[in-house]
Design a protein around this nucleic acid. Sequence first.
RNA 1: CGGGGCGUAGCGUAGCCCGGUAUCGCGCCUGCUUUGGGAGCAGGAGGUCGCCGGUUCGAAUCCGGCCGCCCCGACCA
Length: 490
Amino acid sequence: MADDKKLTTRAEDFSAWYNEVVLRAELADYSPVKGSMVIRPNGYGVWERMQRALDDMFKASGHVNAYFPLLIPQSFLAKEAQHVEGFAPECAVVTHGGGKELEEPLVIRPTSETIIYHMYAKWVQSYRDLPILINQWANVVRWEMRTRLFLRTLEFLWQEGHTAHATHDEAESEARTILTIYRTFAEEWMAMPVLTGLKTDSERFAGALRTYCIEAMMQDRKALQAGTSHNLGQNFAKAFDLTFQTEAGDIAHAWNTSWGVSTRLIGGLVMTHGDDNGLCTPPKLAPIEVVIVPIWKTDDERGRLTEAAMQLKTELTEWTGRGASDRLRVHVDARVGIKPGAKYYEWELRGVPLRLELGPKDLEKESVFSARRDTRVKAAIPRAGVAQSVGTLLDTIQSDMFAAAKARREAATVRGVTSYDEFKTIMEGEGAFVYAGWNGDPAVEARVKEETKATIRLIPDPEFRSATAPSKCLVTGEPAKHEVVWAKAY
RNA sequence: CGGGGCGUAGCGUAGCCCGGUAUCGCGCCUGCUUUGGGAGCAGGAGGUCGCCGGUUCGAAUCCGGCCGCCCCGACCA
């Protein structure tokens, strides 16, 4: 009989491993409605930390929060041609309310551009009313054919920012500013390295002028689009009569941006850092950063060690070395009847970044025994000054996790590929991020996707580009217009 | 929507071919002994075998229909 305590390994079946980690770490569970899921406290705790970090960054860059309604008149979607084409097929539509058929069906928002720009049109008369810099935290519904926990569900949670500006350049600058925030969040909080850049036309948001994105590499070498920021140009302003009077007295259409990240990031977190023992959460996003496991043999010891563990917790949580409002998040696992080893496995599965073991020997030696989740390295820490040591160790774990993830990505990145055959061999094998030249023709993208399932993830920003730009298109050999990054994607 | 797989206790399963009232493991409850990497023993609770219909003395098992879920693909954050 198979040992059902063991997870399927990543090497055996990455997809099965992912599902098992999400379910067994109790991040989420399947709901009765196909394609939608329940986000359980362990998963929601991570989301709450993500929200807090992002929200702080949005506020610090001048944005404010608001809330727009879930239901949108169906006709609104149709006002921007490309937008409706992109989203209509995946909209859930409400046709009845209060026992009667509605005069006009209501769409459950797949995204909120339409209703928001409709409202902005009411609120803006003068250039003095601009810019509008609003974000909302909300749920949206997209009726996807095929769903996957966190990565693609019928309903998901996200933030969507929607801004209005007087000029193109200001909107462009906003879109880029947000992309930088997303990158900072991914790298500094999620410990997830990302590429930044521009989407090609075929991957552009329905109704946008330009779509910027952050792309991360998962451990199966597939790309995950982790966030997007769109310069919408004047497309929506024109569709919704979002106009204003300029300083010179003319009437002009506003320039908009929209941008979002979703609970998909939690899936990205799992696939970036998880290992064959389960989840591995970067300290900054971990609802519990430190779990203390007291160890005892006798009843007398149980009393003493549990007491010592509680004292240790108090000392850790009272430490203000990271600032008075950023205390260590510590849990004591004093459950009786469960052996320490069983507790270790459980907390490792759940991804708690640091475990502190406290037994009679540690009390004697005036130390605690630590075990890192990421590297599984164990070491004794002197009891004196333990909070400072733990704080420092957590910082180290955070940065080591980022470095490890970045090293994995770099090891699976190939530059200078000039032969399409070589490219196919790579994509048929383990896969990779392949930097190569592209002639700018969407037909080439379509052909490569058809033949290899790989797509252009982005036209990378300058800092990610190769030292020597590729001169020829990977596929046609024609002069390259851009260096692009190819990969299979989620 | 195409391809594949699966529905039996909270979870994972055996039994199905060849019909006779359901197996085992994990988990759960109680007690005792345990506790530095997934504890042991003893006792116990828990089941409309996905649903509907048919065949039969008798259906988890055979037949027909339906439903649901997961995985792979097309589509997408």
